[in-house]
Amino acid sequence: MADPNPRVLPYGMAAIDEAARRITRGECVAVPTETVYGLAADAGDAAAVAGIYAAKGRPAFNPLIVHVPDLAAAERIAMFDADARELAARFWPGPLTLVLPLRDDAGIASLVTAGLPTIALRVPRHRAMQALLAASGRPLAAPSANASNGISPTRAAHVAASLGTRVPLIIDDGPCKSGLESTIVAGRTILRPGPIAAADLPFAAARRHGDAAITAPGQLATHYAPAKPLRLNAREARPDEWLIGYDSIIGDDTLSAAGDPVEAAARLFDALHRADASARARIAVAPVPMEGLGEAINDRLARAAHR
């Protein structure tokens, strides 16, 4: 009989080495940060990032925070202005996330950014996340390690109770120091309040309200919409349509010929980009069942088709 409990290892090099091996294989692992426990995967591997969504269960597509070891690594991924550099100098490593323009050659999976031209970056202070970044040699996407809509986990036991064996490994390094998700700042606007208060910032910061455009984690999802008209639940292409297939429906492209929603989630944004760049005037997408990740995929497609 299979063990119903996830594998939990105390912090140490044995745990870090195993976690790094799993990251390299495209898996996700739970690791503590100074804010909450994160569910980490290689931010450059779309299938691995889709695995995060699958493990959390029935998610909406939101941009994810990418963790990097230092400012130099962040600068290889995003473009910094003077304000961002000042914030990084003051608060990194620490519980501050900066939303910055994404470099064209960043090598980040589009699923991480939800198709946006910006990326949310953080340099964590916690020894476990820093050790995993060093051992894996990869930027790590890491939302909170809990089931969707659950309470954020601040102990390894919280992760185990919420995700069970949906996460193959949990690194236990005790309770998180902050226990509150990071403050998110874009320019001089606070997108999400957190451990770093507005009064701590070196400039007067505005607050983004809930009805404004969503550009970062902790807000409602913003979806990539192609320039071309998009028809959903298509079983065959009409004249001048580029058909994105799924499962048994064959198209010009496919989200997953095997009907795998994890693969479909990983391929979704890239497939939409290819369709938008094609010579056809319109786009059609085959039906994707609503179960599990299918709900998030359909939410994304519905928003992309809205005009």
Score class of each variant (00 low, 15 high):
V8T: 13
L9A: 09
Y37L: 00
D45E: 07
N62H: 14
L39Q: 08
A20P: 06
D3Q: 12
A43N: 08
I65T: 15
I65L: 13
R25C: 12
E18R: 14
L64R: 14
V36H: 08
R7P: 09
C28L: 10
T35K: 04
V8D: 02
P59L: 05
P4R: 12
V36M: 12
M1V: 13
M1D: 15
G38R: 03
I52M: 00
Y11G: 12
P10V: 09
N62Y: 04
I23M: 05
A54D: 14
A55L: 09
D3P: 05
R21H: 13
E18I: 06
V29K: 10
G26C: 09
T24S: 14
D70S: 03
P63E: 12
N62V: 13
A46I: 02
Y37M: 01
T24C: 11
P32R: 07
V68C: 05
E27F: 07
F61L: 15
A40C: 05
E27L: 04
E18V: 08
L64Y: 11
Y37T: 08
L39I: 07
R58C: 09
P4L: 01
E27K: 08
I65A: 03
P59I: 00
V68S: 03
R22H: 10
A48W: 01
L39K: 10
F61P: 06
R7Q: 14
L9H: 04
A2N: 15
A14C: 03
D45G: 09
P63F: 06
R58E: 14
I16R: 05
A2Q: 15
A46C: 05
A46H: 00
R25K: 14
N5V: 02
